[in-house]
Design a protein around this nucleic acid. Structure first.
Length: 728
DNA sequence: GACCTGCTGCGGTTTG
C-alpha cells in the first residue's frame, strides 16, 4: 500500500486515513500506479462492487490537485448511464473532495438549472453527466465545448459494458470524439466495467485507433463462491390455479426467500406482475407483513423509490420481483440470492444480475434458476419436445461458468444514430459542409465503417423534399430544414432511443405507473398492476389516464417489446448439450428428467443424423444450429419462396406453400447463389428512432449490418443440403 | 420472443 498511497495528494491521503482503512484494495493500488504512471487509456474490469470509482478517482483527483496552475474548464469528466448513479457517485466524490477546492457537479435532467448555470459560468472540478445531457450541451452550447473541456484531463465512463450493445453507446463515443476534435487533442478515456467477455473488442470500443495501447486492470480471484441451482417445473396447462407450475414456483420462492433481501428476475413486465401478485397473496395467506414487491420501468417513480429504499434498509426483509431495472449499478446493497425465472436473453446480463449477490467478503453468490416446461400432450409440438427454454438456460449457465459473454458487434452501421449525429453537428456549428460532417463523424469519429457513398445517401434521405430535416445552401453549406429545426429544438431530440406512448394508471389520485396505449382497456375490465388487482373505473383518452380501484381478479396488461438476439455461441452450446451426456450437478431431479427427455427426443426425431426432419406433409423442423441473426436470415429467404416460417432457438418450423414446393430444392437454389429479394413491403425495417427518415435501401443496409447475416446464407443452405445428400 | 436508459427553456407561482 505504501508506494501507491504515497503517490496520492495530501487531501486524498487524509480522506483515506479518516475512513480508518487498514489498506488499499488490490484494484486501487494497481489503478493508482497505472493512472499516475502514464497517460494511457484504461479499462478497469471487476465483477463486483470493488471500489472501482475510488480506485480511478483517487489518482485522478491527486493529479488535478498537484497541478501547478489551475486551468479553466472542467478538470475531469464522468459519464454515467443513470441519473440515480450520477447522484450516488457525486455524493461519494464530494465527500472525497471536501477538503479541497474542487467542485463536484452532477448534471442531468433533475439537476437544478441554477446549478448548471453556475457551472457553465465557471467550469471547474469534476462534471458528472448522462450521455443525453452531454448531447444537449453540444446542441445548445455548441460554441462553448472547447472552453468547457479544453483542460479536461480524463473522461471516466461508468458501466462501460452497458454501452457496448446500444445506440446510446455509439452516441456517447461520437460525442467523445467530437469533443476531442473541438479541443484539438485526445482526452484520456477510462472505462469502468463489470467483467467483459472479449477484452480485445472492449479495448477497440474504448479507443478505436489505438486499442493495443489501452491498458487493462482486471480483478483476479476474489470472486465470491458461487452457489447454483436450476429447478425444473412441469406445467399442466389449463390446470387448477393452486397447483399450477407458476404457483409452485411462487411457493418455492416464498419459502426460500422470505426473511432476507433478494432479487427475482422474471424476464418480462407481465411476468413480474404475475409473480409479484402470487407472492403478495402467499404473504397475506401466511398473515405475514408484506415483503415482496414488483419493480419495473412502467411502475411509478414513487413506488420504485420505495422498493429500492426497502432493499437498502437492513431492518426490513425485501424481495423485488423485477426486470432489468435492478440490473445496473444503483446501490441497493448486497442481496442474499438472485433468482431468474425462465431462460435469460444474454449471458452478459445473467452475469451482471448474479453480481448483485455475494458482494460482501465471505458471502457466496447465489443463483436460483427456475424453468417451467409444459407437460407433453399426445401430439406435442417439436419445440415442447426439445425443451428449448430449459436447454437455453443450461447453455447460458455453462457459458457463464466458463467466463464467456457476448462481445459487441463492431460491424453494425447504426444509421439511425448517424442521422441523429448529423443533425447534432449541424446544430452545434450552426451549419456545416458535408465534408466537415463526414470528417467529424466518420473519418475521425465513431462511424468509421460508413463509406462516403452511404454517407451521401443518408444526407440525401435527410434532405428529401418530403423529409426536410436538412437543406443545402448555394454555397454547399448544410443547414437544418423546416422539420429538422423542430425536431432538434424539442428536448426529446437528445435521446437516441425511442419510447412508446403510454396511459397513466391512477388509483384514488395516486399514480401507479403507465401502460402502453395499445392495451384496450374499458370500464369494468380487471388488470394486475404493481403486484395488485384493479378494476378499471374510467378511461380518459384525451389526457391518457386510466382510473382504477382495488379488485379481486385480473390479468397483467400487454407490455409489448422486441424479440432479443441470441448469440450463435449460445445456440451451439445448446446443440452440444443435446448431443452430449453431461448431467450438471446444479440441476434438480425434474430438470435432469427434462434434460434427458429433450436428448431422447432430439435423437428420436433424428436431429443427430439430419438437420431437417419432416413432421408431416410439407411441414418440417430445420435445425439451423445458429443464433437469431443467421436464423432470421434463413427465415427471410424461405419466406421469399412463400414458405411459412416460425423461428425458435436454433430451429425453424417450416410449412411449404403447396404440394409442388420442395424445401430441399429451395435450399439448393439458395446455396447455388440464386438472386433473392429478401425484403418484401411487409418486412419491418424501422427498428430505431431515426429510421423513419431514411430510405428503404439504407434501412436494408442497416438491418444487414446488425440484424441479418446475408453472407452466411449460402453456406448455411449448402451445409443443410450436404447433410441431406445431393438429390432432392 | 424482452428489457432498460434520457430530456431544455421558459413561464407561472410561491416564498422570504
Amino acid at each position: 500500500m505504501a508506494g501507491a498511497f504515497d503517490k496520492l495528494a495530501r487531501p486524498v491521503q487524509k480522506w483515506i486515513r479518516q475512513q480508518g482503512w487498514q489498506e488499499l484494495r488490490d484494484i486501487q493500488v494497481r489503478a493508482i500506479h497505472d493512472v499516475m504512471g502514464s497517460g494511457a487509456d484504461l479499462i478497469i474490469a471487476a465483477s463486483t462492487a470493488g471500489g472501482k470509482t475510488e480506485a480511478v478517482f483517487f489518482p485522478l483527483i491527486s493529479q488535478v490537485l498537484d497541478e501547478q496552475e489551475p486551468s479553466a474548464g472542467f478538470d475531469l469528466l464522468y459519464i454515467g448511464p443513470l441519473k440515480a448513479l450520477i447522484t450516488d457517485q457525486a455524493e461519494r466524490l464530494e465527500d472525497i473532495c471536501l477538503d479541497t477546492d474542487l467542485p463536484v457537479v452532477p448534471w442531468h435532467g433533475d439537476v437544478q438549472q441554477s446549478t448548471k448555470a453556475r457551472a457553465l459560468k465557471a467550469p471547474r472540478g469534476i462534471l458528472l453527466i448522462t450521455p443525453e445531457s452531454l448531447e444537449a450541451l453540444f446542441v445548445r452550447k455548441g460554441a462553448a465545448i472547447s472552453r468547457l473541456f479544453g483542460a479536461t484531463r480524463a473522461v471516466v465512463i461508468d458501466e462501460l459494458h452497458s454501452m457496448l450493445h446500444s445506440e446510446r453507446g455509439v452516441q456517447m463515443r461520437s460525442l467523445l470524439s467530437r469533443m476531442e476534435l473541438a479541443v484539438k487533442r485526445p482526452i484520456r478515456r477510462i472505462g469502468l466495467s463489470a467483467t467483459l467477455g472479449d477484452m480485445a473488442l472492449a479495448r477497440s470500443y474504448l479507443r478505436f485507433d489505438a486499442a493495443d495501447e489501452v491498458r487493462l486492470i482486471e480483478t483476479e480471484g476474489g470472486e465470491a463462491e458461487l452457489r447454483l441451482q436450476l429447478r425444473g417445473y412441469i406445467s399442466d396447462g389449463e390446470g387448477d390455479r393452486e397447483t399450477s407450475a407458476e404457483q409452485r414456483v411462487a411457493t418455492h420462492l416464498f419459502e426460500t426467500l422470505r426473511g432476507s433481501d433478494n432479487l427475482v428476475f422474471a424476464g418480462a413486465r407481465g411476468s413480474v406482475e404475475v409473480y409479484a401478485d402470487r407472492l403478495r397473496r402467499l404473504c397475506e395467506d401466511a398473515h405475514m407483513p408484506q415483503e415482496f414487491y414488483a419493480h419495473h420501468a412502467s411502475l411509478s417513480g414513487e413506488h420504485r423509490d420505495f422498493v429500492e429504499k426497502r432493499l437498502k434498509d437492513a431492518a426490513k426483509p425485501t424481495t423485488a420481483v423485477c426486470t432489468s431495472t435492478l440490473e445496473l449499478g444503483i446501490d441497493i446493497g448486497d442481496v442474499a440470492c438472485v433468482a431468474q425465472i425462465g431462460a435469460p436473453f444474454s449471458v452478459a446480463s445473467l452475469r451482471q444480475r448474479l453480481g448483485r449477490s455475494g458482494r460482501r467478503a465471505g458471502q457466496p453468490a447465489v443463483l436460483r434458476q427456475y424453468d417451467v416446461e409444459v407437460r407433453l400432450s399426445s401430439n406435442p409440438s417439436f419445440v415442447d419436445r426439445l425443451r428449448l427454454g430449459l436447454i437455453r438456460s443450461v447453455a447460458m449457465i455453462e457459458l457463464l461458468l466458463e467466463g464467456w459473454c457476448e462481445p459487441p458487434k463492431p460491424q453494425a452501421l447504426h444509421l439511425s444514430t448517424l442521422a441523429h449525429q448529423i443533425l447534432s453537428v449541424i446544430a452545434q456549428r450552426g451549419g456545416a459542409s458535408a465534408d466537415t460532417i463526414y470528417n467529424t463523424l466518420c473519418l475521425k469519429g465513431a462511424f468509421r465503417q460508413i463509406r462516403v457513398s452511404d454517407f451521401v445517401r443518408v444526407l440525401r434521405s435527410l434532405g428529401a423534399p418530403d423529409v426536410e430535416l436538412i437543406e443545402q445552401m448555394e454555397s454547399g453549406l448544410l443547414l437544418l430544414g423546416r422539420v429538422g429545426e423542430k425536431i432538434v429544438e424539442n428536448y426529446r431530440f437528445f435521446a437516441v432511443f425511442e419510447t412508446p406512448e403510454e396511459y397513466r394508471l391512477v388509483a384514488n389520485g395516486r399514480e401507479l405507473g403507465a401502460i402502453p396505449v395499445d392495451n384496450i382497456l374499458s370500464p369494468g375490465m380487471m388488470v394486475i398492476f404493481s403486484g395488485r388487482r384493479w378494476l378499471v373505473r374510467e378511461v380518459d383518452d384525451q389526457a391518457k389516464v386510466i382510473s382504477v380501484a382495488p379488485a379481486e381478479g385480473g390479468t397483467p396488461p400487454i407490455f409489448g417489446g422486441d424479440p432479443g438476439d441470441i448469440h450463435d455461441r449460445v445456440i451451439e452450446r445448446m446443440f452440444s448439450l443435446f448431443e452430449g451426456d453431461k448431467r450438471p450437478v446444479y440441476m434438480d431431479s425434474v430438470a435432469l428428467e427434462l434434460l434427458e427427455e429433450a436428448r431422447v427426443n432430439f435423437r428420436v426425431m433424428g436431429f443427430q443424423t439430419t438437420p431437417i426432419v419432416e413432421l408431416g406433409e410439407g411441414t418440417f423442423a430445420v435445425a439451423t444450429r445458429t443464433g437469431t441473426v443467421k436464423t432470421n436470415t434463413l427465415s427471410l429467404a424461405l419466406r421469399a419462396f412463400d414458405f411459412r416460417v416460425e423461428q425458435h432457438n436454433g430451429f425453424l418450423f417450416v410449412q411449404a406453400p403447396d404440394e409442388e414446393a420442395s424445401l430441399h430444392t429451395v435450399l439448393k437454389r439458395i446455396a447455388d447463389g440464386e438472386e433473392l429479394d429478401l425484403f418484401s413491403a411487409a418486412t419491418n425495417l424501422r427498428f430505431e428512432k431515426y429510421h423513419r427518415y431514411l430510405s428503404d435501401d439504407l434501412l436494408i443496409k442497416d438491418a444487414c449490418s446488425s440484424k441479418l447475416d446475408i453472407s452466411a446464407l449460402r453456406q448455411m443452405c449448402s451445409r443443410l443440403c450436404a447433410a441431406l445428400g445431393d438429390d432432392p
